[in-house]
Amino acid sequence: MIASVGNVLVWMVWVGAATACLASGIAVVTLTNPFFSALGLIGNLSSLAVLYLLASAEFVAAAQVLVYAGAVMVMFLFVIAYLGGRADAPWAGGSKLFRIAAVVTGGALLAETLVALLWKSSRLSHSAAVGPTFGSPAEIGRSFLTDHLLAFEVTSIVLLVAAIGGVVLGIQPSPEEETTA
């Protein structure tokens, strides 16, 4: 009895989070003001974190909220504020043919993804049982420092290179370079 009540509760939270996730995703793509798009993406990332929690990925959910909805989105909002009115993204432009082709391609990609993911999905109805420490920071840290040590190190190099790239792109060109360019 208690298990079934818990099941219904999980279902309710899941449906709410999934609906919020899809709705905010559509809002990001359709809105013309990039500020509202960025806010929609924050909602999308937060509701995804709820889905991660339901899939017992506590550490990934926390990292999602801290790194993504926190740090990355603050950077986005700073750039949007810096650009001001120039960042507005009206739907105008682009030939009609191109837009139809884009919708057909996107729809085909969506259908292909769904078929690939859900084909004979009855095989996926029984998931493995996991212990209470599954997805905890300790377990993920152990996995990172033993089985996935190379990925861990390479990720740090990728982040360093990206940081250097950001600095190089942000260097203000000196006036004489500006005139020759």
């Binding site: 995703g25 559509i26 793509v29 996107g106 990609l109 969506l110 993804t113």
Partner: peptide, 9 residues
């Protein structure tokens, strides 16, 4: 899959 499709669009 739906999120991926929305993003691709």
């Amino acid at each position: 899959g739906c999120l991926f499709g929305i993003g691709a669009l």
